[in-house]
Write a protein that binds this DNA or RNA. Sequence first.
DNA 1: GTTAGCAGTCCTATGATTAGAGTGCTAACA
DNA 2: TGTTAGCACTCTAATCATAGGACTGCTAAC
Lengths: 355, 355
Amino acid sequence: MELDARKIIILKTIIKNYLETGEPVGSRTISKYSELNLSSATIRNEMSDLEEMGYIIQPHTSAGRIPSDKGYRFYVDSIMKESDDRVNEVTELMVKKVDKLEMLLKNLVKHLALDTNYAALISAPALSENKIKYVQLSQPGEKKLLLILVLEGNIIKNEILTIDEDLDMETVLNLTIVINNHFSGLSLNDITGTVVKEAVNQAGRHRQTVETVIDAMIDMMAAGEETRDIYTSGATNILKYPELTDTKKAAALISAFEEKDALKKLVSEVTSDEAADGGHNNLQVYIGGEGPIQNMKDCSLVTANYELGDGLRGVIGVIGPKRMDYEKVLGTMKNLMEQLDKTFGKDSDNKEGKG
Amino acid sequence: MELDARKIIILKTIIKNYLETGEPVGSRTISKYSELNLSSATIRNEMSDLEEMGYIIQPHTSAGRIPSDKGYRFYVDSIMKESDDRVNEVTELMVKKVDKLEMLLKNLVKHLALDTNYAALISAPALSENKIKYVQLSQPGEKKLLLILVLEGNIIKNEILTIDEDLDMETVLNLTIVINNHFSGLSLNDITGTVVKEAVNQAGRHRQTVETVIDAMIDMMAAGEETRDIYTSGATNILKYPELTDTKKAAALISAFEEKDALKKLVSEVTSDEAADGGHNNLQVYIGGEGPIQNMKDCSLVTANYELGDGLRGVIGVIGPKRMDYEKVLGTMKNLMEQLDKTFGKDSDNKEGKG
DNA sequence: GTTAGCAGTCCTATGATTAGAGTGCTAACA
DNA sequence: TGTTAGCACTCTAATCATAGGACTGCTAAC
């Protein structure tokens, strides 16, 4: 059997209708709803075919049809193909005014959740490709060293290290200079064993301390995949959709958003899928048990890889019921990505706004 | 009518039973459950009295009784009076090993939620009483200044400021020295107009910049009541209790935990109640619509004021259904406070662990 | 003061019934 | 051959009535 034009129209109408109402849709509805001007009987025949082909499902004998995962997939793919560039309501992101990366991310994810009415998440960018601007050391107490790492894009990281010796101010200054000499301008990937060795050697009898510092620096930058911060918003939107309101399922989902561990795993899986399906603005849709959301069978996930210039790359995503408004979500995400590109694109010098 | 010994036993038995089951409890249950060896008829008479006195309520004619807010209050007060010092299972807090304040707080609140099976929150300590150890300035870019504030207790704060001039390295160093000279050792309350003026004057033609820096410092430390970070855990535990599972209520509550704004307000109200009810280890119980939780009529809130030495004071709390296991929660909280005291008490030198 | 017993109340669970929505099939039609 | 009308059938969800159970309150007896 073939999926001819008429079947496609009917299929899409069924799905659209189901997305809106959440109720199984029957033949009579389609007959009235679509511009096909066919009787419900004809529609019934077609629907029977569509069911046989696996695009729609009948929850029980006397109910209408609902889309299967295959049906959703077809629908989503066809949306993605329409290169419909109509500009969505411009999300008035005050991205330029935000002065902390954390704040920017929190704002972004909040907006996304508000706009879509689903749960949204964003992963803090990986720092491993980011270059070190400079490093500062100081002594906040006995046998303590405060390490401050300033990365390209004005990302600041700090940590208090415990060391084995007490240093005088001059030594601290000297060590700071040594480290800056060796590491300024390097990204994580540039930090080879040789570089480390050279720096350590130059530290003379403070080699132990310098080693500690370097280890800490590497840790801070490597804080990639697994330890990366994740910000979320709108987890409780999940409770708005009856099919997810079942207490157990809802609790599990919302917990996942609270605990973040599951989300981290999810993000790392999505990251590795990156560009698997090239083009499409890097947008990905996972339906039902597809890919990284196998344990969220009743949900769909829409993700995109964002970039804030300076090589700050991360993942942003929306999780909602399978019958989410894909069109809107995809539009919103696309829009958001474009805004970010415009604001943080390589040639823009609006690189303030991050610290 | 008087609340005699027998009535008290019956009242407590009713409440205990209701806390366990969540179902209204009838006279026959009490008759069998308590060691009073009275017939259900007698209990019925007493219950009738208790109802008249306002301690218990009958949801409908042919149902058992449930505690009223007044009943809960009586019960909680009587628990608080029992100075029962039995040691709870020692929460194996790895407080000593934690090396970031943020991590410590997150661990604490997570433990609390896991132990109690309710939702828990903790507010980051106020910094206004905390003294400045030292300040560091550096230039991460054009017209940018990175301000790093190191407070007693090794709390680190950083922010990138935009300034109107470009400084050379020497000037930055000089300004750093000026600021440290004037502000090292001061807490927020010590920073008077005079101090600021002196520092600004000494900055010569860079007064504008120094003003910006000082303003930022004050903001960072003042980030008290309203802007203070709040960490939460176990929000979804709320879904475990049928009386809160009503989708709307649950969504509102969980949202509150997600958004944090409401919680901030709550914390600041609790803080102002502080020591209102002296003794009792600073533990407070708010039942139903009492005090700061007027919009959470079906919940109770247990709070305590914690201190991590160094004047780092904040609020920790548990929110659950009105029929929460007060005894356990109070015990757990008490325990926790004692552990914190032991670990961070004034005389302890385990003051590492925070940064 | 305590208790047994009984009538009365109200909730809840259960089952039966019904209305409605929707299908599949057949037969007629263009 | 594709489309449609119509009918029998199925299954769900809502409604209703009924019965059972859990209590209470009251009265009368101990």
